[in-house]
Amino acid sequence: MIKVNFNAEVDEARAQKILAEIKKDKMGGWMELPRKYDMGEFARIKEAAKKINEESEYLVCIGIGGSYLGHRAVIEALRPKSETKIIYAGNSLSRRELEWALAKVGDHDFSINVISKSGTTLEPAIAFEAFKKKLVEKYGAEEATRRIYATTDAKQGALHDEATENGYTKFVVPDNIGGRYSVLTAVGLLPMAVAGVDVDKMLKGAAEAVETAVEPALNYAFMRYALDAKKYDTEIFASFEPSTVYFNEWLKQLFGESEGKDKRGILPDSVIYSTDLHSLGQYLQDGRRNLFETIIDFPTDDLNAKIVAAVRIAHTGGGIPVLNISVTSFDEKGFGELIYFFELACAVSAKLIGVNPFDQPGVEKYKLELHKLLG
């Protein structure tokens, strides 16, 4: 269960109106997803994960942004045990990184999970071509086809068409769920299942959060709204677990892409303590007072608990508002709850400042300019 240590002034009428708007939105499908998941597809995901585990030493997950950050966050945080290792590709245009990933796979048995709603995003498209070529060279065209799993649009798009034409195993990126809200769809569930994450337990945690996370999520959203009105325009997400660095990265994408529009939105940043107490900690203690801190408090040992308490006392005393969000378990259930909590709080936060939580026009502008430069 998610708990917060603060009480915002929640306008209940406005909150309920916003919740209804999100639920009716064409991109609000994630709100009821944990309780209404397509169990037929869920069974196919687990069956595919079993097959990949049996025949591959590596699964190459190809995607960028919402197509990879969420499941990488969970896998790296929980460090589950699986004979099949996950390698990430297609999340940058670095030739060095692509060559490193190809060399890492080497002559080992591997499969590919390419994740893209359209199939035209440049970074994953380049990586997919490189790994597909390696797959065909190693296994031949027919066996290579069996080892490609495409998570894409249900009806259209370049990747959908290629997968249909070649007979790749397909999973769906739902039309009513955007990338950064898609962790609990096949986008995230297949890689997590392959890595050894208990996806049943994760969905159970998220399903419970549909009921239990609403009140704390509204509290958090309205608290952020109040702080923004007082010119606290930067939020520092703080964790005391080094393995959660990619969870922080997912949070930065979630809030940055959802809120950062029309010259509005709180700038999201992150730290990992106690490491960053010896670097950015100085700025947080004595720098500009335009920021607030949100501590994600996982169950921990006594020493870390004392560090959490010391940070809260020091930073509050230094003039920083410090919010505390705690989750009861550092496991699949806890992360299922936490993911749903932040998705809901983020969507409400965006609505409070009058922007669309589900589009990303700035990202599309960069893509357009890049395509122009590439001819």
Rank of each mutant, 00 (worst) to 15 (best):
G317Q: 10
Y283S: 09
T294L: 10
H315Q: 07
E293P: 12
F292D: 04
T316D: 01
R288F: 05
Q282H: 14
Y283D: 07
P299A: 06
N290E: 13
A305R: 06
A310V: 01
I295E: 06
V311G: 09
I307F: 11
S329P: 04
F330P: 00
R289S: 07
P299Y: 09
N290L: 09
S279M: 06
T300F: 00
A314Q: 12
D286E: 15
S329V: 02
G287W: 09
T294D: 12
A305C: 05
I307V: 14
G281A: 04
P299M: 14
G317P: 04
D301Y: 04
I296H: 13
A310C: 00
S329L: 00
N290P: 08
A314L: 15
P321Y: 06
I325R: 00
V327L: 14
R289V: 05
V322G: 01
I325D: 02
S279V: 10
N290R: 15
K306G: 08
G319H: 11
L291S: 09
I313L: 06
G319I: 02
G281K: 05
T300W: 00
G317H: 08
G287Q: 10
F330E: 05
F292C: 05
I325E: 01
N290G: 14
L303P: 00
F330Q: 02
T294F: 08
D302T: 00
R289F: 11
T294W: 13
D302K: 13
V308N: 03
A310M: 01
P299G: 03
A310K: 02
A314N: 05
G318V: 04
V327H: 03
L284M: 13
F298I: 02
A309F: 01
L303A: 04
D286T: 15
L280R: 02
V322N: 00
N324I: 14
A305T: 01
D301I: 05
T294R: 08
V311R: 12
D302F: 00
A309G: 01
N290W: 11
L323I: 01
L280H: 08
N304G: 01
L280V: 10
T300R: 08
D302W: 01
G287M: 13
R288M: 03
N304Q: 14
H315F: 12
Q282T: 00
H315N: 12
G287Y: 10
P299L: 06
T300H: 07
R289N: 15
K306E: 10
R288C: 01
T328D: 13
I313K: 15
L303T: 04
R289E: 08
P321L: 11
G319E: 06
G318K: 06
I296F: 15
I296G: 15
S329H: 07
I295T: 11
G281H: 10
S279C: 05
F298T: 02
V327D: 01
R288Y: 13
L323G: 06
R312H: 05
P299F: 13
N324A: 03
I313Y: 11
L323P: 11
L323S: 07
T294M: 14
V308R: 11
G287P: 12
G317A: 07
A309V: 02
N290A: 10
K306H: 10
G319D: 12
F292V: 12
T294C: 13
D302P: 00
